[in-house]
Computed example of a mutant assay.
Amino acid sequence: MKSEQYLVLHGLAIKKYATADAVAGIMGLDPEHVASVLREATARGRVLEANGKYSLTPTTRIALASDYSRHCADLRESQPFAKAYEEFERVNSTLKVLITHWQTVDIAGSAITNDHADTAYDSRIIDRLGDLHERADRILAEFARHLPRLQIYRDKLSTALERAEDGALEWVSDAKIESYHTLWFELHEDLLCMLGRTRVE
């Protein structure tokens, strides 16, 4: 598999179901080139297209999974990268708790959906997210040192946090945009694919 095609398909594996522009944005590739690769892959039956969005076929997903060992051999053998990944997983556990606190509030011992009416509560969670990002940023920098394209996540996560801190609450966890939680989830998926790991729910 050509490296350029691999990156496009890898981006689609992370996004699951996405436009060419979305794949290009997360992989740092030219959108027109990504669109061309996806059109060719669709014609060859490797990718499915519906309403301008693409997804991998099951066969392509399996083939891509087996191809990671070749494309990502250096990362899999890197002890510094493995150490950074383990630190990332520890921060990930903290983030999962934080997002739960963002999405729900405790009322008389019961967790109910956060309607975001309590601005003080939301502000405390966003402050915690800022503290978490300070811990994470060193890890993100280490990832980017080994694989420069991962700097995209670092930049996008900082932007999402800044927007949330400026009062746009949807940038914390809204799945329809590149919110902090959405980007973090995609970075995690990126790492899992490359390292051949399995997500622990």
Rank of each mutant, 00 (worst) to 15 (best):
M1R: 04
M1Q: 05
E4W: 09
Q5R: 15
L7I: 14
V8I: 11
V8W: 02
V8K: 08
H10A: 09
H10P: 07
L12K: 02
I14N: 04
I14F: 03
K15F: 01
Y17A: 01
Y17C: 13
A20W: 00
D21V: 10
D21L: 11
I26T: 11
L29I: 11
D30F: 06
D30K: 10
E32N: 09
E32K: 12
H33M: 13
A35M: 08
A35E: 15
S36A: 13
V37S: 05
R39H: 09
R46D: 04
R46T: 00
L48N: 12
L48K: 11
A50L: 06
G52E: 08
K53T: 13
L56C: 05
P58C: 10
R61D: 08
L64G: 08
L64H: 02
S69G: 01
R70I: 12
C72L: 09
E77C: 10
E77H: 14
S78C: 10
Q79R: 15
A82Y: 00
K83Q: 14
A84M: 04
R90P: 02
V91Q: 02
K96V: 15
K96L: 14
W102G: 04
Q103K: 15
T104P: 13
T104L: 11
D106C: 08
A108Q: 14
A108M: 14
G109Q: 09
T113D: 13
D115E: 14
T119R: 15
A120R: 14
S123N: 13
R124F: 13
I125H: 01
I126F: 02
I126K: 02
R128I: 00
L129E: 02
R135F: 04
R135T: 05
L140C: 06
A141P: 00
F143S: 09
Q151M: 11
L157R: 13
T159M: 10
L161D: 07
D166A: 12
D166T: 00
G167H: 12
E170L: 05
W171V: 05
S173Y: 00
D174Q: 09
A175F: 09
K176H: 10
K176N: 11
S179Y: 07
T182R: 13
F185L: 07
F185K: 07
H188G: 04
E189I: 07
D190L: 03
L192V: 08
C193H: 12
C193D: 05
C193L: 15
M194N: 06
L195N: 00
G196R: 05
G196I: 02
R197I: 03
